[in-house]
Simulated scan of single mutants.
Amino acid sequence: MFNEVPELYDRVRPGYPDELFADLVTVTGMDEGSSVLEVGCGTGQATRSLAALGCSVTAIEPGREMAALVRQRIATFGNVEVETSTFEEWDDRGGRFDVLVAASSWHWVDPSIGWQRAHDVLCPGGWMALLGHVVVRRPGELEVYAETADLHERFCPGNPG
């Protein structure tokens, strides 16, 4: 569904704060020499931030229209390659990565394949970073956000927000 309306998806999807990527660098030790695999890059919201760090990024996106949009958005970066594939079917060509990032996308990966595959494509001592949004109910927000928070709590119990 997202692939049919990539511009709309990009416009309404929340982005990620710069502090998140600063923390990612601190925790993983990634730098300009690091190789990053991004699984399910969507329209490139996290991809742009990863590219700005200067590391080498391989971004995988199964949706052709989504992948086309991210290619446009990162065209000025020479350190990003976007491949159209699912993670499960992607040809890694023997490549290994220092960090695997999945920004609000890991839930789309088949767990019977994905976890082992992630292990296999990471360098020894590599990092896997699963990034996502936390639904927080704030006073004064529209009722739809309150309803979403209730559903999130119901299906993801223990969420501190």
Rank of each mutant, 00 (worst) to 15 (best):
S49I: 03
S49G: 06
S49V: 02
A51T: 03
A51M: 04
A52Q: 10
L53V: 03
L53Q: 13
G54S: 06
C55I: 01
C55P: 01
S56W: 00
V57C: 03
V57S: 03
T58L: 15
T58V: 15
I60Y: 01
E61H: 10
P62W: 07
G63N: 08
E65N: 15
A67W: 03
A67I: 08
A68P: 01
L69M: 14
L69I: 10
R71K: 15
R71H: 05
R71T: 13
R71C: 09
Q72I: 04
R73P: 08
R73S: 10
I74F: 00
A75W: 09
A75K: 13
G78T: 05
N79Y: 02
N79A: 05
N79S: 07
V80P: 00
E81I: 04
E81D: 12
E81V: 14
V82Q: 06
E83L: 13
S85F: 00
F87P: 02
F87M: 08
F87T: 03
F87D: 01
E89V: 09
W90Y: 15
D91V: 09
D91P: 07
D91H: 12
D92I: 04
D92G: 13
G95E: 15
R96N: 05
R96V: 15
F97L: 03
D98C: 06
V99D: 06
V99T: 07
L100I: 14
V101N: 01
V101M: 07
V101P: 03
A102Q: 05
A102N: 04
A103L: 07
A103N: 03
A103F: 04
S104N: 14
S104H: 02
W106F: 15
W106P: 06
W106K: 06
W108C: 06
W108G: 06
V109Y: 03
V109N: 05
V109K: 04
V109L: 09
V109I: 14
D110T: 12
D110Y: 08
P111R: 14
S112L: 14
I113Y: 02
G114E: 11
G114N: 10
W115P: 00
W115Q: 05
Q116G: 14
Q116F: 07
Q116A: 14
R117V: 13
R117I: 13
A118Y: 00
H119C: 09
H119T: 13
D120C: 07
V121A: 09
V121D: 12
L122P: 08
L122E: 08
L122D: 08
C123M: 13
P124S: 10
P124A: 09
G125K: 10
G125D: 11
G126D: 12
G126Y: 10
W127N: 08
W127T: 04
M128K: 06
L130W: 09
L130C: 12
L131S: 06
L131I: 15
G132F: 10
H133R: 10
H133Q: 11
V134N: 04
V134R: 14
R137P: 05
R138F: 10
R138C: 03
P139L: 11
P139V: 12
P139C: 09
G140Y: 06
L142P: 02
Y145V: 01
